[in-house]
């Protein structure tokens, strides 16, 4: 009984931390409303918040807020939350703290698809061709990695990592080839620029589209997160607990890939988030995926939206967000490491 009550107390503490993280995220979003290069008086902005959608284009204050700033803030939260969730998920499934969401070659596939889209858009004109191709190629990369790993007869997790490396390197080679042959005036800078990543493209159309994919996928991952605990015990033990490891691994990786591909296809690859945030989450709530995955989601969203605030408002020009996530994320990570004494890794 004593054990029972201490466990209960422990999870109560975790619940408190999660509620705190929700509060931090909401604060981060609200602060972001007031930040931007287009000056809107804070009092005026509070009034603007109640504007009916039909009046959003009535003045330049509302159109800047509702059509530039707000979609961007939402996209930042979504991308940050999704990348961190995927990172936490993949680190659990692969039982490796150095894994990032692009382990299966998904990001590389997305970049290849985007580059192809940029080159092809000269011949075919389909709106959002770049984003669509990026998404398709990201998914294709994962399918290819998974197939290679399934066909080979080795330890499944190791095979997956190797297959992901193979597919990622191949996609990178193909990308370099496209860059090599691209038109140097427009296409090449566009490809380089796209790959660097950023949230400046945000509009409602994109936000809505990725929401449709992200919400069900992320909810599902959270609902299945206890299975990640079992998977992270290793295949043999998981099987002995009656879990079909192959099946659950495929489902989890499939949804993880889905959210990474949809994020990368709208924002390019944003480095470090998917690697660092899950660690931070583990240090805060411990290694149980039931808590560390939702925690990653919350701090990931808050982190990226805050970094993007700097990217879009520190100077009048745009700062590439990957520079910020790495430059500010890494010292923060080092601090957590020192403070946590590596305790989150059993």
């Amino acid at each position: 009984m004593g054990e029972e009550s201490s466990r209960f107390k422990g999870s109560n503490k975790v619940a408190l931390k999660i509620i705190l993280a929700v509060a931090v995220l909401i604060c981060a979003v609200v602060i972001s409303f007031f930040i931007g290069r287009y000056r809107i008086e804070p009092m005026r902005l509070v009034q603007l918040l109640t504007t009916a959608p039909s009046n959003w284009l009535a003045s330049s204050e509302t159109s800047v807020f509702y059509y530039i700033r707000l979609p961007r803030i939402i996209l930042a939260v979504l991308v940050g939350a999704a990348l961190s969730t995927a990172g936490a998920l993949f680190q659990g499934v692969f039982r490796n703290p150095l894994v990032s969401p692009d382990i299966l070659g998904v990001s590389a596939g997305c970049c290849l698809g985007a580059a192809l889209g940029i080159v092809l858009s000269r011949y075919i004109s389909i709106p959002y061709l770049v984003q669509i191709l990026a998404f398709i190629f990201g998914i294709l990369a994962m399918i290819l990695s998974y197939s290679i790993a399934s066909i080979s007869r080795g330890e499944p997790v190791v095979m997956l990592i190797l297959a992901g490396m193979i597919v990622g390197s191949f996609a990178n080679a193909a990308l370099s080839f496209i860059k090599f042959t691209a038109d140097p005036y427009e296409e090449l800078p566009a490809i380089v620029f796209w790959i660097m990543g950023g949230l400046y493209r945000a509009n409602w159309y994109m936000v809505l589209n990725i929401l449709v994919i992200l919400i069900p996928s992320m909810l599902l991952i959270i609902l299945l997160s206890w299975k990640v605990n079992v998977l992270s015990l290793g295949d043999e033990e998981a099987s002995s607990l009656g879990i079909n490891t192959r099946c659950f691994r495929l489902v989890l990786l499939g949804f993880g890939t889905l959210i990474v591909a949809s994020c990368v296809s709208v924002s390019g690859s944003i480095g470090w988030v998917g690697l660092v945030i899950p660690h931070a989450a583990r240090i805060i709530v411990g290694p149980d995926h039931k808590y560390s995955i939702p925690m990653s989601m919350l701090i990931g969203g808050a982190f990226v939206v805050l970094m993007d605030n700097i990217a879009r408002s520190l100077i009048s020009a745009e700062i590439p967000i990957s520079i910020l996530t790495a430059a500010i994320g890494t010292p923060f990570f080092a601090y957590l490491l020192i403070k946590g004494r590596g305790s989150a890794w059993r």
Partner: peptide, 18 residues
């Protein structure tokens, strides 16, 4: 004059509108 970004690092649309 305000710097608004470039081809390489992107355009800050809010700064342009401002």
């Amino acid at each position: 004059v305000t710097k608004v970004g470039d081809k390489k690092s992107g355009i800050n649309v809010e700064a342009v509108v401002a």
